[in-house]
Design a protein around this nucleic acid. Structure first.
Lengths: 140, 140
DNA sequence: TATAACGTGTAGTATAAGCTATAATTGTTG
DNA sequence: CAACAATTATAGCTTATACTACACGTTATA
């Protein structure tokens, strides 16, 4: 049953995506905070994510272990080169997903909401299809 | 900053979606196994998901606690009314997402792969937009 | 029918992600 | 410059999801 194997591989891929999902959300948010306010503080990240700050501290620890951010005790959070690159990739992808949803008639708020969940599971091929559609003539 | 609040709410929604995601995958898969082979065995579920069987056993326990499945020791797994309803909703949604991805030019395999991750994060509004697009004239 | 093979369950471990409560540090201000 | 407010860190707990290793039941067959 090769179908079952392929399905198992798909589920596995989704599980892997989940592991990077949080990292992506964090670096994207940290980049956003740095760009807009000059620095990323744990408290701000917590507020924006809607979680308690110790949760953020632990997550930052993991991100640091994985080479995505750098932080010193009682200082603000910085992105490494890798982290910054990931953030930019995510931001671009996020914008494409939102733009695409808007294009097919989803309202701004729903588009932002759905994109937050969808963006982590979009392959390059699908992303390219989204871009194609965005550039195409109006639908309807 | 109402923007920050809305963003926090969006992230919160995604985290909630994650909690139901696994349940959705399980019931959909169990329904599929029952319909195609007559029964759902833990081993088959494990193989299809690509995880070890104790993982499935624990998950089934949670699903049972949540009223989605019924199972007795050393017997196969059954869906409750609630579980069956969820499975059908998921199956329909899955098919719409795949159909939609195919329509915009994503190949079968990638569509299946991406849909597995995307489907859990698609609102009713977005789903409706997908359906509209599927029914529209060919793109390109 | 006894046993081997397979399926299922249990125990124990790890990691991630969340929380509350408490401690430590920093920075601001009286 | 001392004290207080705000931020950051730590400790300890919970749940979910994964794993391996081992024990127990069922089923099929020799």
């Amino acid at each position: 049953m090769p179908d079952a194997d392929r399905q198992a591989a798909n589920f596995q891929r989704v599980r892997e995506a989940h592991q990077t999902e949080l990292a992506e959300d964090y670096v994207e948010l940290i980049a956003d905070l740095i760009d807009s306010t000059g620095e990323a503080r744990a408290t701000d990240v917590a507020r924006r994510l809607g979680v308690a700050h110790p949760t953020v501290v632990k997550a930052i620890g993991r991100l640091q272990r994985d080479g995505l951010v750098e932080s010193l005790p009682y200082r603000s959070i910085f992105l490494t080169e890798t982290g910054r690159a990931m953030a930019e990739r995510c931001k671009r992808r996020h914008e494409i997903v939102v733009g695409f949803l808007r294009k097919i008639g989803v309202d701004e708020e729903t588009a932002e909401r759905d994109a937050e969940g969808i963006e982590h599971h979009v392959s390059e091929m699908t992303l390219a299809a989204f871009e194609r559609l965005i550039r195409s003539k109006p639908l309807g």
